[in-house]
Structures are given as structure tokens and as C-alpha cells.
Design a protein around this nucleic acid. Sequence first.
DNA 1: ATTATACTCATTTTCGAAAATCATTGATAT
DNA 2: ATATCAATGATTTTCGAAAATGAGTATAAT
Lengths: 214, 214
Amino acid sequence: MAKATDLDDVMRDGILRGTMEPGSWLRMEELKARFAVGFSPIREALSRLVGEGLVEFEANRGFRVKGLSRADLLDIAVTRTAVEGAALRRSIALGDDRWEASVVGAMHRYRRTAAVAFDTDNGLSQWEAAHDELHAALIGACGSPRLMMLQHRLQEQHLRYRRLIVVPHVGAEAHIAEHEQLVEYALARDLDAAVAHIERHMMITVDALSNAEF
Amino acid sequence: MAKATDLDDVMRDGILRGTMEPGSWLRMEELKARFAVGFSPIREALSRLVGEGLVEFEANRGFRVKGLSRADLLDIAVTRTAVEGAALRRSIALGDDRWEASVVGAMHRYRRTAAVAFDTDNGLSQWEAAHDELHAALIGACGSPRLMMLQHRLQEQHLRYRRLIVVPHVGAEAHIAEHEQLVEYALARDLDAAVAHIERHMMITVDALSNAEF
DNA sequence: ATTATACTCATTTTCGAAAATCATTGATAT
DNA sequence: ATATCAATGATTTTCGAAAATGAGTATAAT
């Protein structure tokens, strides 16, 4: 079935989508049966996910999906603020026209997907994907592989929490306005305004989520 | 010999100390013989190190020690600036007396080890260790597990470059003065001065290293 | 001479039987 | 009754034989 090299992709997907429950143990025999492979590829893929922070390992007890908590959600936000703030600062300072073009393009797609987010079945996840791509585009010119990689991983981890709450129909407009403003600052190369805005933005997301049950 | 769970520690050590050459392939049979274990624990440990950014993996070609380059050294510095800057800002804002005490203590040990760094055989690595501990102590009150973990990993990665150049006997005084100043700002809770100082500090280290041959 | 194809060989990668581990249960002694 | 220790069982973890892979080499075809 699934090639062994892509096993971590499949499992990452399961963890991010909540199919594999946060905090639950990952029993070897079960995974072996589920994915129709031997022990080695499974352990290897899980070890990679440990490094990514999605899975925890306890010697002789096995692997488990990393749990969710308010403290962890806050920590993700704090770290995202540090990483994305610095990356955005550099990106705005270094970005050329190609960067501007990619931001404009991503913003366009973001607007479009937001407009139909509640119409179709997977409209919401389309919007979410466009949102994440917009953020990635904004820091795309920062020139630091590590900062971009960290942003990507933190976005993934954040995704697990976003999926837990129902996005209110009404909030959409404010959400869009937030990003219009952010992109405007970025393209105007207003460094301080953009960074201040994105830092505030991170915390708003936490506030919205911290009322949720989990 | 070495318990299988600690295999990654042993290999990490080898990579950081340069025993395992940067860019070189890690042949399975060789590692199997060297550590007297089977394939599985080796692959697992290496997979963990992939997540930490010390090892690269290419499907069906195997694992290799991550190479060194000027671009990579600069990227480490950029990322360290982002992570340690933000962490220090939070640490200064949130730190209590216990934090102050740990900083004072770490600074004391740093001074002591610096004084005898060139006297004994392993004096230099003692000094290096104390230096890293001082930086860890400074951000110790930031309250973010992720920022502290990232700082630790980046410090490790930076270590591989530090080992490449010979620390000049003369530079020691300036190095100590830098840290005296930094600690002073931190304990005085002068947030902006401390953060500005540490950001400059990161770049100084890069400059010193970028003249080295590699 | 150059491209295409089959064959080697060194190496990675997978597999499941077997060993190791830990929590639990049951037996025994105080 | 409670503590101590041995047996049990469920599960993780290791191991090396065997399969899969890809790079290199030889052979054949145009």
C-alpha cells in the first residue's frame, strides 16, 4: 500500500486531522496491521515525528501522539511570534518583486477561498490551506531555511488546535480584514507596523481558541 | 556496550565533536560493527537526529552527517538571533529571584572557567560549556519549552563551527567583557539594551568564524 | 561511437521470529 | 493484613537473514 518512506506523511496527516487521538498510545501491532508493513519502517517514521514534535517516545513503553493543552497552545503562539516576527522583518527588508508577486497572489487566493469557505464541504480546509500559504509567502524572502522550516512545523502544530473549534461564520470578515492590513503593511515595507501587527495577530488566535473545550 | 536508547546520544556526540566527518556517509555495516547492535536501533537513532537537523537522509542511499557551509553558519546565527532575542526578552520580563540567582551563578562559573581556559588540557571545552550554560540560564525564565529547546539545539549546531577555529588567547578579555555587559543589562531588567546587545553578539561570533577555512 | 539493455555487486531496507522489558497478578512469608 | 518476591502476560525492542534498490559495468544493437 503506502510506500514505507511516506509512512511518516500518512501518520502526520492522521495526527494533524485528529484521526489519531491526542495523548493515545500507538500500539505497534495495530499500526503494523493498519499499514501492512513491518516494525522497522513504523518505528523509523515515528522517530522522525518525534523530532518534529508531533509524537512522544517513552523507552520500553512506546510512542504516543503528543497531547494537547492550553499551556502548549500558548507555547506554540509564543514561539510562532518569535519565529514569524523575525522572519517577516527580514522578508520585508530583503524581498524583491518576485516576493511581492507571490504575496499578492497568495492574498488573492486567500480572499477567494474565504469567500466560499462556508459554501462547499471542504471549503473551510481550502481556506485554511490558503491562509497558511499566505503566511508562508509573507516570510518567503527571509532567506533563512531554518526560520521557514520552523514556521512550517509550528503552523502544523497549530493546525491541531484550530481544528478543535468551529470557526464562526461572523468572524470571517474580521479575519480577512486582519490579513488585508498585514499584507498592506508588508508591501508598503512598513517593517515595524507589520511585525507589530503579526505579533498581535498571533495572540488573537490564541484568545479565540482558549475558550474552546479540550 | 552502549544501551540502544542512548545510541543517538553517542552519535550526536561524535557529530558535534567532529569524529564523524561533516558530509560523510554513514554506512550501516560500519555503524553496526562499531556499536555492536543491529540495524534497527541505528536507523532509529539516526532518524531522531534527522529531526534535530544533525543528519540528512536520502531514500535508498542512506544517512549522512550534515555538511558545513558559510551559508549554514549564517543561518544558524540568524535563527539564534530570533529565538534567543525573543526568549531573553520574555525571560527578563518574567524572571524572579531564582532566575537572577541562576544567572549570577552561571556568570560566576563562566568567569572562573575563562580564567583558566588556556591552562589545562580540557580547559577550553570547560569554558565553552560554561558559556553555553550562561546563555541557557539567561533565557531560563522565558517560560517557553519550545524556545528553550530550540536554543539548545541551535547551540549544539553552532558548536560544530566553533570547534573549527582556534580561539585566540587575546580575544578572551573582549569575550568576557561582552558577557559581563549582557548580564548587567539583564539583571538591571533593561530589556531593549539586553536584546540589542545579544543580537549584536550573535553576529560578532559569525564574523569571527567566517574567516576560518572550511 | 553512441545509445540501449541486461547483469553485478555493494548497500540499504524490510520482515517477523525471538529476546527483553515492564506492569500485573498470585503466591508466600512475616 | 501487608510486604516481598516469583510467575505471567502483553508489548516493546532487537536481530540478522532475505528482499529491494540503484549505481556501475559489461554486452549488444543501431
